[in-house]
Design a protein around this nucleic acid. Structure first.
Length: 149
DNA sequence: GCCAACGTTGGC
DNA sequence: GCCAACGTTGGC
């Protein structure tokens, strides 16, 4: 079981939007970065990730679940040869992070200093280790059994 | 609003 | 295949 982190500017797509999308979820579309896309290709249904508010907030605010594996991004322009270049997964909200964990907090914690969020701030879809996932759930007051389903 | 970091593009 | 120029992201 792998863990992930998804970044979104709340002005574009916020945690509230994500929650309103409900259990059937919503395409995580608009990614136009090969590294981020490749991580999405590796995702399996049922895997969990963090929902992070970039720019405005700069904190982890929710837990999401992969409810649909990678498929062509409906917002991407069609390719000439019919092979999709840009793909995405579907995500559904699982639970809130009661005490959002800020970037500042993450950078200040030695257990989290190697998180991609701290080392490569521009990557919008990132892998998270299980240890990091558990640490942040604990810091954020998230019930682990709820987060992991 | 600025700018550093990063990725992509295109000229050579 | 190198690298300068450019565009974008996102923290500050």
């Amino acid at each position: 079981m792998a863990f992930w982190l998804f970044k979104s500017e709340p002005a574009t797509w916020s945690w509230d939007h994500q929650k309103r999308a409900g259990a059937k979820g919503q395409e995580w579309d608009g990614v136009r970065n090969y590294q981020a896309r490749n991580f999405m290709r590796a995702m399996k249904t049922g895997e969990r990730g963090f929902f992070y508010h970039s720019n405005d907030g700069k904190e982890i605010v929710g837990i999401v679940e992969v409810v649909g594996e990678v498929h062509p991004d409906s917002t991407a322009p069609p390719s000439k040869d019919g092979v999709a270049i840009w793909e995405c997964v579907d995500l559904a909200a699982v639970t809130d992070v009661p005490r959002p964990v800020s970037l500042e907090t993450i950078k200040a914690d030695p257990r989290l200093k190697d998180m991609v969020l701290a080392t490569n701030s521009r990557l919008s879809v990132q892998p998270v280790t299980e240890a990091e996932f558990r640490t942040i759930c604990e810091m954020g007051g998230v019930d682990l059994s709820e987060a992991l389903g």
